[in-house]
Nucleic acid binder design. Structure first.
Length: 588
RNA sequence: GCCUCCGUAGCUCAGUGGAUAGAGCAACGGCCUUCUAAUCCGUCGGUCGCAGGUUCGAAUCCUGCCGGGGGCACCA
């Protein structure tokens, strides 16, 4: 929550508490009707009707969930529960809707409940009931929108996991942005989340990396299969500086020199990656080294990989054929069995994956989420199979999310084509906020292209500015209000009757549901889309409803109440941007 | 060939079985002596790839086809 903390409008701090007390004492305690509460009330009503008919049906709040109708004439909230239940109760949907509506109209805070179309129940709230939301939001502050839909779930979320043999590039940025935002959203819904980066620091790629850097450090020609890129030269120079005796050592013991150069280069590169991620406001709880999976215990215990193979063998999933050791992943839906140990006795990458999975399981995680690019699509089957072989539920204990790759200005990113753009370059060019927002704005499975010119533009082409501007506006209003003497000493929610106020309040009420939905679906882009709608509603309200009195006008309850609404809008914009890892500046 | 994702306005894309399918951009036209015009308002713009099916109701679910991306290693 660091982002939103620092972004708090300054004048919101001191006087607010006193204002709150005053407002509380002079305002009536209105029945608040949030969509959640309305759904619960409708569920009670429908349950009564079901019972009166002697039917045995269980009605949950899910069944009577209300949604914001697209058409303003359809009220504030609409439910299709009558249509869903009519058949099961053997009644006409409109008739059932009518009975629900009659009782719903008696709920405190409901102004009207009408039946429309094939059986919709359209509910309109009292202005005061809706307006009460503004105060609730301000009082909840940073916690508004947080919920417990996922409470009790211990989730491991792995993403990025780029090889530490080079800088992060565009190909990794989408998962960095999406993964970090997903972690924040899951936490906001009450889940206990560990975000994790798997470091592929074992195997032939590391050796290749080591040889490349050593050659650079010694000023030799690059080896045949060396990593390309200027960063290898830079790493070589740093290695040479930090190991002055490297050339001497290489002459006498090439392998020892390689080992030292490789290890140092690895540490330097990993530190760079961590720095880049930090600048991108992406946080990992755990950096998990693949190497530790290959390392035997100090008392000579088998390595985690060996132990994992043994465990799966005991479960009867391992067999030998063609000089290799296999795991029968086809028992769990994979399209072919996989090799654990090659003919030459070396573990495959997949064996490490299996050991890593078991590590996550042993560390107590229920759901393990993998965020992978579409180029790893082939991994779904085998990862899922390992979960099954480990005795986990392949439906609930593992989730492999596959996302589409990113284009840059329409040009497909390709290592071979050499048009790699490093994350650091992108950050310098576009800034973290614009980049993160843009990457988090689309569903993972939707193709996405990064248009540099658009992201640099400070216009509506670039939705992050639209949202940030709305937030900055709430802060400007707040500052001006303080100057003009508009305070929060009264709160009269029944005065918030303008069309744009109803709309804005509706958006504020939707936010907790949006967070919960984004968490359950693992779709942080829903937060971004919501923020754009909220910002639009705020801008329209700002355009129509003044917080500050005009010249010669006296300050009244309406101005003060609107100040609460302004604060509430700013708070929700801040909370939402924080879930995306985007800052909420007080001025633009 | 098999698996998977995508196909929605001129462009980029939203849309968790609901009402007349939305937003931004582009194009055209409006609003600043009033809290930030990076805002707002209006107009134009659609066989939701095609064809069946499921049902009170389908852009959404199922099947088939067409078009595009990606994947199908004893690589890492």
């Amino acid at each position: 929550m660091a982002t939103s903390g620092q972004a708090l409008c300054s004048s919101l701090r001191g006087p607010l508490v006193a204002d709150r007390e005053r407002a509380r004492s002079c305002a009536l305690d209105w029945m608040l009707v949030t969509p959640q509460e309305l759904a619960a009330a409708l569920a009670r009503i429908l349950s009564e009707l079901v019972a009166e008919r002697g039917a045995e049906l269980i009605v949950t709040e899910q069944d009577t969930a209300v949604e914001r109708p697209k058409n303003r004439e359809h009220g504030d909230w609409a439910s299709n529960a009558a249509m869903k239940f009519a058949k099961r109760l053997g009644v006409n949907p409109r008739e059932l809707a009518q009975q629900i509506a009659e009782r719903a109209e008696r709920i405190d805070g409901v102004a009207r409940a009408e039946v429309a179309g094939p059986g919709f129940i359209n509910v309109t709230l009292d202005a005061a009931s809706a307006g009460e939301t503004a105060r609730r939001v301000v009082e909840a502050g940073e916690s508004y929108g947080r919920g417990d839909a996922l409470r009790g779930q211990k989730i491991n979320l792995e993403f990025v996991s780029a090889n530490p043999t080079g800088p992060l590039h565009l190909g990794h940025t989408r998962w960095a942005a999406l993964g970090d935002s997903t972690a924040r959203v899951l936490r906001a819904a009450g889940a206990e989340v560990t975000s994790e980066y798997y470091i592929n620091d074992a195997g032939s790629q590391m050796n290749k990396f080591g040889r490349s850097v050593l050659a650079a450090a010694l000023g030799e020609d690059a080896p045949e299969d060396a990593y390309p890129g200027a960063y290898i030269q830079t790493l070589g120079e740093r290695v040479r500086e930090q190991i002055p005796e490297l050339a001497e050592l290489a002459a006498s013991d090439r392998d020892a020199a390689l080992a030292q150069a490789q290890e140092l280069a690895y540490q330097l590169q990993l530190a760079e990656i961590k720095d880049s991620l930090e600048r991108f406001n992406v946080h990992f709880d755990v950096f998990f080294s693949e190497r530790t999976l290959h390392t035997p215990g100090e008392q000579g215990e088998p390595s985690p990989i060996a132990a994992a193979v043994d465990r799966l063998r005991e479960q009867g999933h391992v067999f030998e054929a063609d000089d290799a050791i296999w795991v029968r992943t086809t028992d769990f839906g994979d399209d072919k069995d996989r090799v654990f140990t090659r003919g030459n006795g070396v573990y495959t990458y997949f064996a490490a994956d299996a050991a890593y999975y078991l590590s996550k399981k042993d560390r107590g995680f229920g759901e393990k989420i993998y965020l992978l690019g579409a180029d790893h699509h082939g991994y779904i089957g085998r990862l899922t199979a390992i979960a099954g072989a480990a005795g986990d539920d392949t439906e609930t204990d593992i989730t492999v999310l596959i996302g589409q790759l990113v284009n840059l200005n329409g040009a497909r990113l390709s290592k071979r084509a050499g048009n790699i753009v490093e994350l650091d370059d992108l950050l310098e060019w576009l800034g973290s906020d614009a980049l993160r927002y843009w990457l988090a704005r689309y569903p993972a499975d939707s193709p996405l292209s990064l248009d540099g010119e658009k992201l640099r533009s400070r216009s509506n082409d670039n939705p992050v500015f639209y949202v940030q501007y709305a937030h900055a506006r709430t802060c400007a209003v707040d500052r001006n209000a303080a100057q003009a003497g508009v305070d929060r000493s009264s709160f009269a929610p029944e005065l918030l009757t303008h069309e744009t106020e109803t709309e804005l309040l509706g958006k504020l009420q939707q936010y907790p549901g949006v967070v919960a939905g984004a968490a359950e679906l693992r779709e942080p882009h829903r937060i971004a889309r919501f923020l754009e709608e909220l910002a639009a509603a705020y801008h329209r309200w700002y355009d129509n409803c003044r917080v500050l009195p005009l010249a010669g006008e006296e300050i009244g309850d309406l101005h003060r109440t609107r100040l609460w609404l302004n604060d509430a809008a700013g708070q929700v914009l801040r909370n939402g941007l924080d879930l995306l890892g985007v800052s909420a500046p007080e001025r633009l």
